[in-house]
């Protein structure tokens, strides 16, 4: 059984061939064409490289798509870390305590409610007003996309109710208005996710 070691009998080494594959540079390129040992070595390294590509393809496929949950989780965490936003004060029992919610945690919550709502997806979300001042009047602006076939007015109204309830429980903001703007209609090309026909206008 032939086991390719580093040094070839022709005087070249597999290390040189390895570098040649990456850079295209080698001391005497003319030798390569005529040397069976070098040809065998190169073929072996090329087979390995092809196999490496197969492994890469399999691994990337296994890693999933950038639209999958694992990436969404990472992006959600990044948002909370990188853009906490303003600090919203909460009532404290002890005068020496300071308690806050981050603006980012509240807008992420608003987005998740809108995303989990049937037929809608959240876009931009803003808390308008001085949220750092307890009791200040706050307006919430949410942009949503509605899946084609869902009645937009009805979706927006239902979402507004849901958000109002949630903000009442999870924050101490004085919410004066929740404005919902439908900025897009989403078409589902795949038959798998067709919305209910009964919701169609």
């Amino acid at each position: 059984m032939k086991t390719p070691g580093d040094a070839l009998e022709c005087g070249h080494s597999l290390a040189e061939l390895s570098a040649y594959l990456d850079t295209g540079e080698i001391a005497d390129p003319a030798h390569l064409d005529s040397c069976p040992e070098c040809q065998a070595g190169l073929a072996s390294l090329r087979r390995l490289s092809e196999l490496g590509n197969e492994l890469l393809t399999a691994d990337v496929a296994e890693a999933g798509s950038g639209g999958d949950d694992w990436m969404q989780t990472i992006l959600d965490n990044l948002r909370l870390e990188l853009r906490p936003g303003r600090s919203i004060p909460l009532r404290a029992e002890d005068p020496q305590d300071t308690l806050w919610e981050t603006e980012g945690s509240v807008s992420a919550l608003i987005r998740s409610v809108a995303d989990s709502f049937p037929g809608t997806a959240a876009g931009k979300c803003r808390l308008l007003g001085d949220i750092t001042e307890p009791g200040a009047g706050i307006t919430v602006d949410v942009e949503i996309a509605v899946v084609y076939g869902h009645a937009m007015e009805e979706r927006a109204a239902a979402l507004r109710n849901e958000l109002a309830k949630m903000l009442q429980v999870q924050t101490e903001l004085d919410i004066q208005a929740i404005n919902i703007t439908v900025t897009d209609v989403l078409e589902l090309p795949a038959p798998a996710m067709t919305p209910n026909t009964e919701d169609q206008p």
């Binding site: 798509s65 639209g67 997806a121 959240a122 876009g123 931009k124 942009e143 949503i144 996309a145 899946v147 937009m152 703007t181 439908v182 900025t183 897009d184 209609v185 989403l186 078409e187 589902l188 090309p189 795949a190 996710m193």
Partner: peptide, 23 residues
């Protein structure tokens, strides 16, 4: 690039002119 996202956005006729929401 894989074009795997399930829905494609289109602006509603007559809706306010705003930038597309999603990525």
């Amino acid at each position: 690039m894989p074009d795997s996202h399930p829905w494609k956005g289109r602006n509603v006729t007559g809706s306010p002119a705003v930038s597309p929401t999603a990525q």
